[in-house]
């Protein structure tokens, strides 16, 4: 088991290097630092001096890969690639346009992101699995048919509508909770209720449909027939036999997103003014702050790879066939 996890971690390394090279190519080879400087400075202020100053301020004035001017080890280390890309492996993301340390900012913003994303994830999983179980239990009845229709309708609605509509109705018309904002400590719940609620609702359509398919696939398996032949009531057949087997693909399918919960949600956070990583990213995109976007891409990839490893581990935990072999 330990060897297995170690091997998975070892496999993750080349993938992270790939991500790193890809982002480097995207940010420094597609466009030269000069292009970026011109863009950032705006047409009016572009002078060779301004560009040079802009580059020097951010450390973009070095060569890309190999610094022939330097000697020894620093031919490799005193370059853009080493400074901006390789250092990300040790958690050094550099500074944002406003001069703040990105790593520290990320650390501070993970909390609020998680405060929204985690409850949304847990509650959403519970609601959708229950709903899917209900539809599968009453399969081929009117309840099932209309439930699926509802799901298709709900997944055809834009996520933006859920947020805008929900905010308008619940916070503005009914005035049940504040429209947006974030508080510290226990007071935070008033700000969390609405985004979590909307997050759960907007995920119902597609997830329910997917889980229902998984349940129905299990219903047609041979062991279900055996369970019925034992004379077990239908509820027991569902909860003891079908649910357990269906949870294997469902759980392992969702485990991969758990680490990504740290990243928060771009839309929800920007609409509700949550000071998390999602809104941080959006602000960076709007301000064209390349350093922050680069850092977020890298962190996203790291979290995703952790998710993959967790998925493999969760398989071994929930499926006895893998656990014992």
């Amino acid at each position: 088991m330990l060897a297995y996890i170690l091997r998975r971690l070892f496999y993750a390394l080349p993938i992270l290097i790939g991500v790193n090279l890809l982002t480097f190519a995207l940010f420094f080879i597609v466009n030269t630092p000069d292009d970026m400087a011109r863009m950032q400075l705006g047409v009016k202020r572009v002078t060779p001096e301004a560009i040079a100053h802009w580059k020097a301020e951010r450390g973009y004035d070095k060569p890309l890969f190999i610094n022939l001017a330097a000697s020894g080890l620093s031919t490799v280390t005193n370059t853009i690639f080493f400074d901006k890309s390789a250092r990300m492996f040790v958690g050094d993301f550099g500074r944002a346009e406003d001069g703040r340390d990105i790593a520290r900012e990320i650390g501070a913003r993970m909390g609020p992101s998680l405060a929204i994303a985690l409850p949304t994830f847990m509650l959403g999983l519970f609601v959708t699995v229950s709903f899917a179980l209900l539809l599968a239990f009453f399969r081929a009845t009117a309840l099932d048919v209309w439930g699926v229709v509802l799901c298709v309708a709900m997944m055809s609605i834009s996520g933006l509508f859920y947020i805008i509509g929900g905010q308008y109705l619940i916070a503005k018309v009914w005035k049940l909770v504040p429209i947006s904002g974030f508080g510290d400590g226990l007071d935070a719940w008033r700000f969390l209720v609405l985004p979590v609620f909307i997050g759960v609702i907007s995920g119902i359509g597609s997830s329910t449909r997917w889980y229902r398919t998984i349940f129905l696939e299990e219903v047609s398996k041979d062991y279900v027939r055996t369970a019925r032949a034992k004379g077990l009531p239908e509820t027991l057949v569902f909860f003891r036999h079908i649910l357990r087997n269906a949870m294997i693909p469902i759980l392992t399918g969702v485990v991969v997103v758990i680490p990504l919960l740290f990243m928060g949600s771009l839309l929800t956070e920007s609409f509700f003014g949550i000071p998390g990583l999602g809104s941080y990213t959006i602000d960076a995109i709007n301000a064209q702050d390349f350093a922050v976007v680069r850092a977020m891409v890298f962190i996203g990839a790291v979290l995703y790879i952790i998710g993959l490893i967790l998925t493999d581990i969760s398989y071994t935990l929930v499926d006895p066939r893998i656990r014992f072999s």
């Binding site: 041979d222 036999h241 087997n245 294997i248 929930v318």
Partner: peptide, 10 residues
């Protein structure tokens, strides 16, 4: 089919 007629996770 004894292979599929038993519940694999119980």
């Amino acid at each position: 089919e004894p292979a599929t007629s038993l519940n694999p996770v119980l």
